[in-house]
C-alpha cells in the first residue's frame, strides 16, 4: 500500500515538473551572442562573442550570463591580442559575468508566441569590478524558443580598464553592448 502511495506521489511529482516546464522552467543556451561597439571619429572597434553561456528561470525570473574574454573575436588579430593582454588582462580575469532578475518575468509566456518586454537588472562583473546595471530587454517567444535582446552602454573606466592617453582618441567612453541569445528549454 505504502509503495503504491509513493509511486503515485512520484508520478504526480514528475507530472507537475512536466507541467511547470511547459509554462516556466529553465531556459538555456551556450551560444549566446554579445557584441561590443566603440565608435570614435578615428576608429570603430567591434568584437563578437558567440559562445556566451546564459540561462534564465522563467518562474523566478533569475537570469545569468558568463562570457570568456578570450572568446571575443575581432576583425584584426592584433586588436584581439591587445584586448586580452593590455585592456582586459584575460589571463588574470578570464570571464565576465552577469547575475540578475527579469523583473516582470510573469508577463513572459514561454508557451505562447509573442513579444514581451521587461527590465532586467542585476550585477555585471568585468575584471574585478562588479556594478549594478539595468536595461530594457525584449523577449520574443517563437515555437518554444525564447530570444532575448538588449542594448546598454558601459564606460570602460568604471571597470578598471586602463586606456593610455596615446590611444584615448580611438576608444570611446561609451561602449555599446548588444546581447542577443536564443534560449531553449533545458530538459
Amino acid at each position: 500500500m505504502k509503495k503504491i502511495t509513493i509511486l503515485t506521489l512520484a508520478t504526480i511529482c514528475f507530472g507537475m515538473m512536466a507541467f511547470t516546464s511547459h509554462s516556466g522552467g529553465i531556459f538555456k543556451t551556450n551560444t549566446g551572442n554579445i557584441n561590443f561597439f566603440s565608435h570614435t571619429p578615428i576608429e570603430d572597434i567591434t568584437a563578437d562573442n558567440h559562445k556566451v553561456k546564459t540561462a534564465f528561470d522563467a518562474t523566478s525570473g533569475k537570469m545569468q550570463f558568463s562570457a570568456l574574454i578570450k572568446d571575443f573575436e575581432f576583425p584584426k588579430a592584433l586588436m584581439q591580442e591587445h584586448f586580452n593582454e593590455n585592456y582586459m588582462e584575460s589571463t588574470t580575469f578570464p570571464k565576465s559575468t552577469f547575475s540578475g532578475m527579469i523583473e516582470n518575468v510573469a508577463a513572459i509566456k514561454t508557451g505562447e508566441n509573442g513579444i514581451y518586454k521587461s527590465t532586467v537588472s542585476g550585477k555585471l562583473t568585468i575584471k574585478d569590478v562588479t556594478k549594478d546595471v539595468s536595461t530594457e530587454g525584449t523577449f520574443t517567444v517563437k515555437d518554444g524558443v525564447v530570444n532575448a535582446k538588449t542594448t546598454f552602454v558601459i564606460n570602460p573606466t568604471d571597470y578598471n580598464i586602463e586606456i593610455p592617453k596615446s590611444v584615448a582618441g580611438k576608444i570611446s567612453k561609451e561602449i555599446k553592448i548588444t546581447v542577443d541569445a536564443d534560449y531553449r528549454h533545458a530538459h
Binding site: K28, K53, T54, A55, Q64, S66, K70, N84, T97
Partner: peptide, 20 residues
C-alpha cells in the same frame, strides 16, 4: 550561488593557447 543556472564547469575540456 549566483551562477547556479549555468553549467559553468571550469573542468570542461578546453585548450587554452598561450598568446603574446
Amino acid at each position: 550561488q549566483t551562477l547556479d543556472l549555468l553549467d559553468d564547469d571550469e573542468s570542461s575540456p578546453t585548450t587554452e593557447y598561450t598568446f603574446a
